[in-house]
């Protein structure tokens, strides 16, 4: 029982790291980034490539490099794709839709590139990259990677929450989410802030990618797609842009999944998740956070 709690918690921590970036870029920039799962995969892929090419490379370095690469991908998307679309279309509806389709196209590009490396096959991660060792505390087995995941996710969640709530740029981002043009008028550098947000979201997805790859010891070009489904559920349950609710929903969903798999039928996990999505859409479409449809 407590064992499942620990497993669910570490899964929830990964969900949280992944969904936060998706939620913030949606709330602040009105971008539903369907390539977020692919950026996550690139993080895992970077870890695999580094450990294959440079045996014995320190794990912390891998983590940093993966985060920077994924951050840069996010930045590139903002500069090459989103900013261009924003310039070319003034109609809000059209702009949102074009952006969503562009993220799908970006994701197919990244997957095509990733498959050049993996050969379309799932690849195992070298054991040297991170030596997983388990501890037993009060009869519960917990591995060092699980502890690392939970601690990193907790620290980052607080950092992000503080940044959005108190930080100067975070306040600017909230202003941006309410009215982009108005925020520009009062001196917010919308372009720079968008770039920063996309970089941060990408880096967090990359971090989650490395951590999950180490935990499940596998890398695959399509590994982000299943996670995207979970992140959708989390965002629907939490409401767009509220940090605390997103983390809570991520952990809750992971726990529900773990317990369904453990005490019921493992195949029914996704059915339960989808049922939750429908239930929330029917009963409380604005999510559990009291802010309602308000963004960020």
């Amino acid at each position: 029982m407590l064992q499942y709690l620990v497993n669910g918690l570490s899964l929830g921590a990964i969900y949280a790291l992944f969904s936060l970036g998706l939620s913030i870029s949606w709330a602040g920039l009105n971008i539903l980034n369907l390539a977020h799962g692919t950026v996550f995969m690139v993080g895992a892929l970077t870890a695999w490539l580094l450990s294959e090419q440079l045996p014995g490379v320190p794990f912390l370095l891998v983590l940093v490099i993966a985060m920077v690469i994924c951050g840069l991908i996010g930045l590139a998307m903002e500069l090459v794709v989103f900013r261009q679309i924003r310039r070319r279309t003034s109609d809000g509806n059209q702009q949102t839709l074009t952006t969503v389709i562009a993220t799908v196209a970006t994701s197919s590009l990244l997957i095509a590139i990733a498959e050049q490396f993996t050969g379309g096959q799932p690849q195992g991660l070298s054991q040297d990259l991170f030596v997983v060792s388990g501890y037993t505390v009060f009869g519960i087995r917990i591995t060092n990677i699980q502890i690392a995941i939970i601690v990193i996710a907790a620290v980052l969640s607080f950092a992000v929450a503080w940044f959005i709530k108190r930080g100067r740029q975070g306040q600017a981002l909230r202003a941006l989410s309410v009215d982009r043009d108005m925020a520009k008028l009062v001196g917010v550098s919308a372009d720079r802030l968008s770039a920063l947000t996309m970089f941060g979201a990408g880096a967090m997805a990359g971090l989650a990618g490395v951590l999950l790859a180490v935990q499940i010891n596998a890398v695959e070009a399509h590994m982000g797609e299943a996670l995207l489904f979970k992140a959708f559920a989390i965002i629907i349950i939490a409401g767009v842009g509220s940090i605390g609710a997103t983390v809570a929903a991520a952990v809750a969903l992971a726990l529900v999944e773990t317990f369904v798999a453990a005490y019921w039928v493992s195949d029914l996990r996704d059915v339960v998740v989808f049922a939750l999505i429908i239930l929330f859409l029917l009963v409380r479409p604005q999510g559990i956070s009291s802010k309602g449809w308000q963004r960020a």
Partner: peptide, 28 residues
């Protein structure tokens, strides 16, 4: 009726969730 309550990005996300769910159902 579920989708009717949604607009724009929420609708895109909910319908994509539907597709991803059907995919997962097809496997299991």
């Amino acid at each position: 009726p579920v989708l009717n309550r949604l607009r724009h990005l929420f609708l895109a996300m909910a319908t994509l969730a539907f597709t991803l769910f059907i995919q997962s159902l097809a496997l299991s």
